[in-house]
């Protein structure tokens, strides 16, 4: 028993040393946001389809032989085409897009940045799957290179959303948003788009902008918190046209308003 107690107390002092229920709950928060977006898309006559990730993604449909099923989602940051977490495909004005949880994006610096809930063109994801997984092509790392069209940072925490959390999210956005004025990102060869399947080429999508403000305006980026977000953090994000949403808890209007805003962006606003 003492060894067990020792381990428990050790974990208490180093809470990040293991995957814990708090992470499980945090992951559930991401899955919940992801499914709420899908549900609202369906309400607006856009059909979302659930897939299980893999070399060739498998569509998940109701199994008539089983009364109940198990579905899987990623527990932590990962690649496109790896593991077997679920993602959702939908048609965004004639172009297939995918909603993912916990995907890492490669920035200009070559660093990887996890985006909790992201929406990317399916052409990018499929190119990664085809070339990275099937052919083991060294040009493809498995991580999208650039920025998603929608990036949502999820914070399922009791403590208030701080300015530091906002800064951390902004720092990720700065690295994954490519501007016209930027030098060629490391390893790039004359690429001019918003997002690529690989730093060395492959499928590309969207254009670059001249400023971060325009680039953020030309995409949807939000920090979502289950608790309160301090006003200074809200103001800071708002200055760069990054949204912040607080008190996202089941049953409150705040979650409905947030989901409506995201799906309005998909259905009504017109980014490139």
């Amino acid at each position: 028993m003492l060894t067990e107690i020792k381990n428990i107390l050790k974990n208490y002092m180093a809470p990040s040393s293991q995957i814990s229920p708090s992470r499980k709950a945090g992951t559930l928060f991401e899955v919940w946001i992801c499914l709420r977006i899908s549900d609202e898309l369906k309400n607006r006559n856009i059909t979302p389809i659930l897939y299980e990730e893999g070399t060739t993604p498998r569509q998940i449909t109701a199994n008539p032989n089983r009364r109940v099923q198990t579905i899987k989602f990623k527990s932590g940051p990962g690649k496109i085409g790896s593991g077997n977490g679920c993602f959702i495909v939908f048609d965004w004005r004639g172009v297939e897009h995918e909603i993912h949880t916990s995907i890492e994006f490669e920035g200009r610096s070559g660093s990887l940045h996890e985006i909790d809930v992201s929406i990317i063109p399916a052409s990018i994801a499929n190119d990664i799957r085809t070339n990275n997984i099937r052919n083991n092509n060294p040009r493809y790392s498995g991580y999208p290179h650039g920025a998603p069209k929608i990036a949502i940072e999820c914070k399922d925490k009791k403590s208030n959303g701080s300015k530091d959390e906002a800064r951390t999210f902004m720092a990720r956005l700065y690295d994954i948003h490519f501007l016209e004025v930027h030098h060629q990102p490391r390893g790039h060869q004359g690429l001019k788009n918003r997002i690529y399947a690989s730093p060395l080429g492959g499928q590309a999508f969207g254009g670059r902008n001249t400023t971060y403000h325009k680039s953020f305006n030309n995409s949807y980026n939000a920090m979502c918190h289950s608790g309160i977000v301090v006003q200074e953090a809200i103001n800071y994000l708002d200055f760069y046209n990054v949204k912040s949403h607080q008190q996202l808890i089941p049953g409150l209007n705040s979650i409905n308003n947030f989901i409506t805003q995201v799906v309005n962006y998909i259905c009504i606003e017109n980014p490139d």
Partner: peptide, 8 residues
Amino acid sequence: VIEFTDPI
């Protein structure tokens, strides 16, 4: 069951 999987 919603199962969370190792991303790799």
